[in-house]
């Protein structure tokens, strides 16, 4: 009788600038399943990794922001397509990490795929909803358009390793922002597997960067970083929120505070998360001959 074949395990690494580096610190941490069994060692990202991710996000920002809305919409839709093709892998990883029944994991992965599709469709509609052409009391015309805020750092929800992550990343990048996101600390594996999808979806390198590690450690670096324009604190709890907000004030970051109650990521989204990371620009010109 032949020995059962030994599986080839995956090394889970960071996702920075479209590449998959290990943490420069050489650190890793054990990730267990919901039942405690060992799943993998994830990279424990460091301050330097977070800074590298911000540099990559800043570098990617101008081209992604200038990409046409149609193009950004198609790229996000392609993420959904590729996610669909690998759904079984995600169902298994979500079920392992979060526990719960396979049927539940199934629903969460379906919702995550559909969420990419929902946000993809927003790309060329944001301006119609949030923009304006206002009447002036004088011989001028102006128009107002929403533009991406810049580099947005996010702390992904701790309770929802894939759907929660997608729900905070997709609305940030669809408008042209670039993102640095810290994956759920205890359940980071679906996030890293998602980066394999992102890397093959025509999403330019650096538009989404994913760090794994201690949320508290990485969030503090990102909140204080002077080249981060906004921060989403939804994966942060308790006393940390105030300290991170204080750090964020150093360069007048836009701060999205965690919701008062536990967020239901399966609920239908509204465009609020998307609009929170846009800036309105108003362009004036005189009218005359």
């Amino acid at each position: 009788m032949a020995d059962p074949r030994l599986a080839v395990r995956k090394t889970y690494k960071l996702f920075i600038g479209g590449k998959f580096p290990r943490s420069e610190s050489g650190r890793s941490y054990e990730v267990g399943a919901a039942d405690g069994t060992f799943l993998a060692n994830a990279a424990q990202g460091s301050r330097k990794d977070a800074r590298d991710a911000v540099v990559a996000a800043r570098k990617a920002f101008p081209l992604w922001a200038e990409a046409t809305a149609y193009n950004r919409g198609q790229v996000l839709y392609r993420v959904a397509e590729l996610l669909e093709g690998r759904r079984d892998q995600f169902v298994a990883e979500v079920a392992d990490g979060e526990g719960g029944s396979p049927a539940e994991a199934d629903r969460l992965v379906d919702a995550a795929i559909d969420r990419w599709v929902w946000y993809a469709g927003w790309a060329d509609k944001i301006a119609a909803v949030a923009g304006a052409a206002d009447p002036e009391a004088g011989p001028y015309i102006n128009f107002s358009v929403p533009e991406p805020t810049g580099v947005v750092a996010g702390d992904a929800p701790q309770s929802s390793s894939l759907l929660g992550l997608v729900s905070v990343v997709a609305p940030v990048v669809v408008s042209g922002n670039t993102a640095v996101v810290v994956a759920a600390e205890r359940t980071p594996l679906p996030a890293i597997t998602l980066t394999e999808v992102l890397a093959t979806s025509d999403l330019p390198g650096g538009v989404v960067n994913v760090l794994t590690g201690r949320t508290g450690e990485l969030a503090a670096v990102l909140a204080a970083h002077m080249d981060v324009n906004a921060i989403d604190l939804c994966g942060v709890t308790g006393q940390d929120v105030a300290a991170l907000e204080r750090a964020a004030a150093g360069n007048v970051k836009r701060v999205m505070r965690p919701a008062g109650e536990a967020e239901d990521w399966a609920a239908d989204p509204d465009p609020q998360r998307l609009l929170a990371f846009t800036e309105i620009k108003t362009v004036w010109h005189p009218v005359g001959v």
Binding site: A132, D134, P135, E136, A137, G138, Y140, N142, S144, E279, I280, K281, T282, V283, W284, H285, P286
Partner: peptide
């Protein structure tokens, strides 16, 4: 920048952000 004035400057209107 939040406001760009082209061929004018320092224009304000209550209807405009």
């Amino acid at each position: 920048a939040g406001v760009v004035w082209a061929n004018t400057f320092n224009r304000f209107d209550p209807a405009s952000p």
